[in-house]
């Protein structure tokens, strides 16, 4: 309804020649380097921050490959040993009719990481190609990515708990595999990628993204 009109009339700190502090909200004249209240470094709203987003994103993607190829768990039960990759674990749970757990593990370690890579890339590419009114949708997507990213770490904790607990000598023993490290790294790197994305860029519209 009146949404577009209010959006056009909202002045931004940048329009007023000011830079807003992303940590405490105080505004300072453009060109100030550090916030005088909280001491954080002031980040001007420009596209150079996207380089950091892409750098963390690529590093996270590289770490995600070995996370899927190497085993996450080594299980030894009564003499025979078996290794499980992430996807292998899901398939096995599914074969044992543990549909709910299979779904949880699949969502946390496959669906969420993959959609996070796609969502961050989409946001970083969409910045500057969107109408101002499209911002709400993109901001929502950004907030979902930021909120949900940490939850992928659940799989690393499950591996830690299982390997600490299941130490029953010859009967059953579970050990962590190398994929646990690369998966944890991948989650941390994508979290950093999402944190370096500056949501203020979303609102700048096509003509206003370039230049100072």
């Amino acid at each position: 309804m009146g949404r577009n009109r209010t959006e056009l009339s909202v002045p931004t700190a940048r329009d007023a020649g000011l830079t807003g502090c992303t940590s405490c909200g105080r505004v300072w004249p453009m060109g100030t380097e550090h916030c005088g209240r909280c001491g954080a470094r002031l980040r001007p709203v420009d596209r150079s921050a996207l380089q950091a987003v892409w750098a963390w994103w690529a590093a996270g993607l590289i770490c995600y490959i070995p996370a899927n190829l190497y085993p996450m768990l080594r299980t030894a039960t009564l003499g025979h040993e078996q290794t499980n990759t992430i996807l292998g674990g899901v398939i096995e749970l599914f074969a044992h009719h543990n549909y709910l757990v299979a779904a949880i593990v699949f969502i946390a370690s496959v669906l969420i990481p993959v959609s996070k890579f796609i969502a961050i890339a989409y946001l970083a590419l969409a910045v500057g190609n969107e109408q101002r009114a499209g911002g709400h949708r993109h901001l929502l997507l950004y907030e979902i990515v930021e909120f949900i990213g940490r939850w992928s770490m659940i799989d690393v904790f499950v591996v830690a708990i299982l390997s600490a607990l299941v130490q029953l000598g010859a009967v059953a023993a579970i050990h962590p595999g190398p994929a646990a490290v690369s998966f944890a790294l991948s989650v941390a790197l994508t979290m950093l990628s999402a944190q370096s994305f500056d949501p203020r860029l979303i609102w700048r519209g096509p003509a206003r993204t370039e230049g100072p």
Partner: peptide
Amino acid sequence: LMACPKCDAL
């Protein structure tokens, strides 16, 4: 004055 940390609105 206060700038929104999410969208820079003043």
